[in-house]
């Protein structure tokens, strides 16, 4: 998996990746993972492109994209906030955490802020149950989030990093 957004045409990059695979159709899911890294999401156009390259019906590509929750067909914000909704977090107040973030960002889970800075989602267990309730912003895990001020501080850090026009230290960046 590649980490850095590329200055080159993402379609060319995707094609190069597909060409390098020993099997094509069997690697549809890996190709979609790669495409989502390159484009940030999987719009219609990208799905059709992949279908044409693999010589399979675009309905099949759509079927796979819509099946797996990891794939998204809507553009995401610059930073993706994921609230862990695993059972351990749930019994330690994940719902409250989710409501608090929704309040602070002014969006519902599954939506993106108007300034396209944040998308909010939930996921099922990242295995940091000792730190419950937790959220993950891009690749980074934040735990023991029971105070609204702590959440605000974390979100503000990401806001500021944008204002200062520099990337925060992230593990997995979403190419813009």
């Amino acid at each position: 998996m590649c980490d850095n957004p590329s200055p080159y045409n993402p379609y060319q990059q995707l094609d190069r990746y597909i060409d390098g695979l020993p099997y094509k159709k069997e690697n549809l899911i890996a190709i979609l993972h790669h495409a989502q890294q390159l484009f940030g999401y999987l719009p219609d156009k990208v799905q059709r492109h992949i279908a044409a390259r693999l010589d399979i019906p675009s309905a099949k590509v759509y079927g796979v994209v819509s099946f797996y929750s990891f794939f998204t067909m809507k553009p995401r914000g610059k930073h993706v906030v994921n609230v862990c909704m695993g059972t351990a977090c749930f019994v330690r107040g994940a719902e409250k955490l989710q409501q608090e973030i929704e309040k602070q960002l002014g969006i519902k889970t599954g939506q993106t802020t108007e300034d396209e800075l944040f998308s909010l989602d939930s996921l099922r267990c990242i295995g940091a149950c000792g730190l419950a309730p937790v959220m993950m912003v891009d690749g980074k895990v934040y735990g023991r989030l029971t105070h609204p001020e702590d959440i605000k501080q974390i979100l503000d850090e990401y806001r500021e990093s944008l204002a200062g026009d520099r990337e925060p230290a992230l593990k997995e960046g979403t190419p813009s």
């Binding site: 909704m85 059972t87 749930f90 267990c125 295995g127 940091a128």
Partner: peptide, 12 residues
């Protein structure tokens, strides 16, 4: 594919 929410033994 450890999907059970709240289980993290395989990952560990």
């Amino acid at each position: 594919d450890e999907g059970d929410p709240g289980a993290f033994m395989d990952r560990s």
